[in-house]
Amino acid sequence: MEHGVHDAPVGPGAWVSALLVLVVAALYAAGVLRLRTRGDRWPTARSAAAAGGIAAMGAALLPPLGDRPEFVAHVVGHLLLAMVAPLLLALAAPVTLALRALPITGRRRLLAVLHSRPARALTWAPLVAVLELGGMYAFYLTDLFALAHAHPALMALVHLHMVLAGLLLSVVLAGRDPLPHRPGLLGSLVLLLVVAAGHDVLAKLMYARLLPAGAGSPDQLRLGAQVMYYGGSAVEIALAVALMAGWYARGGRELRRERARERGRGRISAPAPAGSPARG
């Protein structure tokens, strides 16, 4: 690539990326600060998740990783940017933070967007799967990879698509923000299975066909494909744990309410007859 000839250690892309990462970090920090000064609590775990997500974004986009020419560096960047960062940001509950930090008009506007028809359509599970897998398959298996490397603007668009698709997937599956039309547990698990299997199949296709073409020597491509396969699985396991932990916590709250009701009823009526526990 001709860009390498110039003695520019940090290209314009890196500056834009750095600015983007800083803006995200500043917005989240401002929200937490506003809550704190008001005397409200904001869970430290959520702030930590946000910090981790922002760090993952920064690590993927900025030098040294963002500049490395090896294919495996690209794959690690992809994993950080499109999978790790979105999961951590989804766990950081940014929408809840915004709803609590914004003044009433901003809050109303944000709620209107969240409940709008496009938002509802975007969180429809099959569309989430197509957006997530479609972008990756097109990028890695077609000429789009080489084309994007020749045109920085196209590469920025591809990156943006992957981050947003990954964010959408993480928010729908494991986000801690309330979402009006989230799929049920079974639907979420099927979505995760389809996306995870699609990711595994893509990595093996890259390995088998030595794609993307021109991205490096066969050995580099095989290494990149394996990092994609196992790294992707690791993040998807984390996604599954986050999804199930959310389900488990919701079930726990339900169970506590149920037991509180039972205790209340026990106090009013006579105690249950001894020696006859319900056996179903």
């Binding site: 299975l193 995870a196 299997a197 990711h199 595994d200 199949v201 093996k204 699985s233 396991i237």
Partner: peptide
């Protein structure tokens, strides 16, 4: 590869869901 991908992903998903 498709069958392999589904079963690799399904395998770890199964253990996470099963334990919860």
């Amino acid at each position: 590869l498709v069958s392999d991908g589904v079963f690799h992903a399904g395998g770890w998903l199964a253990i996470v869901v099963g334990l919860f």
